[in-house]
Simulated scan of single mutants.
Amino acid sequence: MNGPRRIIVRGQARPAPEALLIGASAGGVEALLRLLVDLPGDYGLPIVCLLHVPDSRDSLLAELLARRLALPAKEAEDKERLRAGVVYVAPAGYHLSIERDHSFSLSREEPRHFSRPSIDILFESAADAYGAGLAAALLTGANEDGAAGLLAVQRAGGLTLVQSPAEAQVPTMPEAALALLQPDFLLPLAAMHSLLAELDAPSC
């Protein structure tokens, strides 16, 4: 097949995603499990998950996901390159960024929206690194972190997904995104799961 792979979204051809990001806060663990639990072990995209956790507490999310998913799951490490078919979790107490060479960078800069890690920082850095080859989803949460980052993804040409606020355990985060942009998809989790499964296919 010549040229970069493309997908069909709502009748329009666009670059196929090279990476998938998911941001969430309050209610996010349950939402993440519902999204990812049935994805196949040969899923072709790296998946980077960022949930707000207190600095003082180690995140057990990677361990939980590793037990429940067909895909391997681990905490992202500084300078580590993203690999297809791996679920990465942002570690507690650090901002997680993605560099132009598609490697992770950890930093201890000041919190943004009272959050470290910050979804905005992850999404904005990944938009710069991947451009139109990025898909990003914003789920349930209790603050506005992630809205500006999702707008950056959209402006870079990436695919944007927002959980329906009516279904979200805490609707503040998806509502903040909808106040800034019209996402490509506004979906309940079951429909979003189906879409994520199709992103690795020739068309969706």
Rank of each mutant, 00 (worst) to 15 (best):
A31V: 05
A126Q: 00
Q163R: 13
S105H: 12
G41I: 09
V29F: 01
L134E: 03
S125G: 11
A66S: 15
R108G: 13
G141D: 01
Q154E: 03
M173W: 06
R81G: 11
E124H: 10
A147T: 04
G27V: 01
G3Q: 00
A148V: 12
R100N: 09
L151S: 10
L150C: 06
G44S: 13
L33C: 10
P171V: 07
D184R: 05
L64I: 10
R100Q: 15
A66G: 15
D120E: 13
A92M: 02
E77A: 12
L199S: 09
I121Q: 03
G44M: 06
N2G: 13
E144N: 13
L199F: 08
R112Q: 15
S115P: 04
L151D: 06
L20A: 08
I119L: 04
G41T: 07
D200R: 12
R67A: 14
M173I: 00
V86G: 08
L64T: 05
D200A: 13
P46H: 00
A168N: 01
L71E: 03
L51V: 12
V89A: 04
M1E: 15
R57N: 11
A129S: 05
K79E: 14
L159S: 03
I121V: 15
A168T: 00
A19I: 03
S59I: 10
M1D: 14
